[in-house]
Design a protein around this nucleic acid. Structure first.
Length: 332
RNA sequence: GGCCUGGUAGCCAAGUGGUAAGGCAGAGAUCUGCAAAAUCUCUAUACAGCGGUUCAAUUCCGCUCCAGGCCU
């Protein structure tokens, strides 16, 4: 069975660096699992690794999409599977590195997503409705899905309706453990083929106070380096304010700031900017907490403190052990 | 110096003669193609201070302090 390494962790913990370090040692290539770094022109705000920082290690799934278009897990999953295959065929080790837990799990668990593309028209129509109205619609379409859906969450309700409208019912979620090999329906077949990896997850973690400090420092550095300009450029190149808002964090709050200062006396500029940075700082912190909540769910993650070299060494040792075990198995 | 307005939890903010909404922040969580999104749960011995009126004051009265505004 093919083996992959995953490097995950909250924002600002130093994943990219560690991934490169690991790749150097084990002849690996890196696949980014980051829902925002796929977009071109979104660099500072996403903390995208620079060419120089890559130190010659190939990186995949960066800068592959236009920020005006919506990239989704499903596309990510397909692309990532393909990249993994290619890397392995080159005799190298795939290293998944990123902070988007949903994306990572799509690879690791081989989550099966219903094959229903977003329906723009339907979404637009439904987006005007309240959660209660959406729920009523979904009940009519698919009672089963209603049982365990978050009935207050319009985004989920809309997607469920979208699926049910397209294929009648929302198929049960494909999930790793309990599906036996006897299931022969197509969703299952896809699932089996996708769940073909053995995974070693390395998680980077820092004490909350330290992480907060790092987030703040990094945010201020980004601002200095031209974060606002980056968002301005995106907007000039045709990315709507609405779209920037949906992209979140830096893109959302800097975009709001840019719109706000258009008709603001220059006296208040500095204040508006400070307020924006403050708000952004707490939002990034919230994001980091959500990441932690997600990552915590997998008990098989090897957590290390990136400040401690002994722990990094330990991680490398574990990785080598993991990869060697593979060879032994294959030889038998 | 005089007049006015205000002082409610870390911040913002409602309100009442019978011990006080909400929001933010804080903590935890959910997650079936937007996941940096969306959603949920939990959380505070807070009414500037001192007197007075009253069965009862955060709410009424007086004084003091503090903040902001106006006037001379």
């Amino acid at each position: 069975m093919d083996k992959i390494i995953v490097v995950l962790g909250q924002t600002s913990t130093g994943k990219s660096d560690l991934a490169v370090e690991i790749a150097k040692k084990i002849n690996g290539e890196i696949i980014s699992a980051d829902s925002r770094q796929v977009y071109k022109g979104m660099n500072l705000g996403t903390g995208k690794i620079t060419k120089k920082e890559m130190r010659g290690i190939p990186h995949h799934l960066l800068d592959i999409y236009s920020p005006s278009k919506v990239f989704t897990v499903n596309e990510f999953q397909k692309m990532a599977f393909k990249k993994i295959e290619e890397i392995i065929s080159r005799g190298k080790v795939p290293i998944i590195c990123g902070g988007t837990g949903f994306y990572i799990d799509a690879i690791v668990n081989g989550t099966v997503f219903p094959n229903v593309p977003p329906n723009k028209k339907l979404r637009e129509e439904l987006s005007k409705k309240s959660a209660g109205e959406l729920l009523k619609i979904l009940i009519k379409l698919d009672k089963n899905r209603v049982k365990n859906i978050d009935t207050n969450n319009p985004v989920r309700l809309i997607r469920a309706i979208e699926i049910a409208t397209a294929i009648g019912k929302v198929p049960p979620l494909g999930h790793k453990p309990r599906l036996g090999p006897k299931d022969t329906n197509s969703a299952m077949a896809e699932f089996v083929s996708s769940n073909k990896f053995e995974v070693l997850k390395i998680g980077l973690t820092l004490p909350p106070e330290i992480l907060k400090e790092r987030i703040k420092t990094r945010l201020l550095a980004r601002m200095k380096k031209g974060m606002i300009k980056e968002v301005e450029n995106l907007h000039k190149s045709g990315v709507s304010w609405k779209r920037l808002n949906a992209l979140g964090l830096e893109y959302r709050y800097v975009a709001l700031y840019l719109q706000k200062i258009k008709n603001l006396p220059s006296l208040r500029l500095r204040q508006a900017k400070n307020e924006m940075i403050e708000k952004l700082y707490t939002e990034i912190w919230h994001f980091a907490k959500r990441q932690k909540t997600w990552f915590k769910r997998d008990p098989n993650t090897l957590w290390i403190d990136p400040r401690k070299n002994t722990e990094k060494t330990k991680a490398l040792r574990e990785i080598k052990k993991f990869l060697n075990a593979k060879k032994r198995l294959e030889n038998k």
